Simulated scan of single mutants.
Amino acid sequence: MLALKMVLLVCVGASLAQELITAEKLKSIEERLRITEATLNELKRENEALRMTAQASEIKLESLQAVNKAKEVAFSVGLLSAGSQQFGPFSTQENLVYKKIFINTGNAYDSSTGIFTAPVNGVYFFRFYVHSHPDKQMAVSLYKNSERQCSIFSLKPQTNTNASNGVILTLKKGDKVNTQLWENSWLYDDENNYTSFSGFLLFPS
């Protein structure tokens, strides 16, 4: 009988020990799962931070590329694409539409209207040249948004006349620049491109 009791006590002890071992294992597994979950959450946060950083870098790169592209602004045009022609006189001022394109980087000059439209805020340089014949008044002005900025004028010269003027302007995006022939004035151009209009962006602002 004593031996049987001893056997039963050993079995009970073994069972209790097994239960303790199982509980310890479960506790260890739960702890490892908790650590794994915390690690995964940390990795998710790091991944999101990296994604946001990459997105911000991409946006910044696109912005820099757009700024660099916007810096490429330059045009130079002649009045006639071919042949020769005398313009004027007109009873009102007439916008000059330059048809021969030497360069139009940035496509800011419109050959259908003769108007340059600033693509970005910045400081720009413009120059225009005009040719006329003897005994004819020649007068041309450069305008910014319909406001006269500078002009050239010759009153009935004795010989053929060439004149030019230039100006540096601060423009906002969308500002317009063009040249106009005064009323009762003349000018001339041919394949030699005596009459021209040019401009370019000095620096954005």
Rank of each mutant, 00 (worst) to 15 (best):
M1Q: 14
M1Y: 15
A3Q: 14
A3V: 05
L4V: 13
L4Q: 15
K5D: 15
M6C: 06
L9A: 12
V12R: 06
G13W: 06
A14F: 06
A17G: 14
Q18K: 13
Q18I: 06
I21A: 13
T22Q: 13
A23H: 09
E24Y: 11
L26R: 12
L26A: 03
K27Q: 07
K27H: 06
I29V: 12
E31N: 13
R32G: 00
R34H: 03
I35E: 14
T36Y: 08
T36P: 03
A38N: 11
A38H: 09
T39I: 10
L43A: 09
N47K: 12
L50H: 07
T53E: 14
A54E: 01
A56N: 08
A56V: 03
E58M: 06
K60Y: 05
L61A: 07
L61T: 11
S63P: 01
L64V: 13
L64K: 03
Q65E: 10
Q65S: 04
Q65A: 10
A66S: 13
V67L: 09
N68K: 11
N68C: 02
N68D: 05
K69R: 11
K69A: 12
A70M: 13
A70D: 15
E72L: 15
V73S: 04
A74H: 12
F75I: 04
G78L: 02
G78T: 05
L79G: 11
L80G: 02
L80E: 00
A82M: 00
Q86H: 00
F87W: 05
S91W: 06
Q93Y: 08
E94V: 15
E94K: 14
L96F: 13
V97Q: 06
Y98S: 01
K99P: 03
I101L: 13
T105E: 14
T105I: 13
G106P: 10
G106M: 09
Y109G: 00
Y109F: 15
D110Y: 09
S112N: 15
G114A: 08
V120C: 12
G122Q: 12
R127F: 05
F128S: 02
F128G: 07
Y129S: 10
V130N: 01
S132P: 15
H133F: 14
P134L: 05
P134N: 00
M138Q: 14
A139G: 14
Y143L: 07
Q149L: 05
P157K: 01
N160Q: 11
T161H: 10
N162Y: 10
A163Y: 00
N165W: 00
N165C: 09
G166M: 02
V167R: 13
I168W: 06
L169W: 10
L169R: 06
T170G: 05
K173Y: 05
K173G: 07
K176T: 09
N178C: 09
L181H: 02
E183C: 06
E183S: 14
S185W: 01
Y188G: 02
Y188D: 00
S196K: 00
P204C: 02
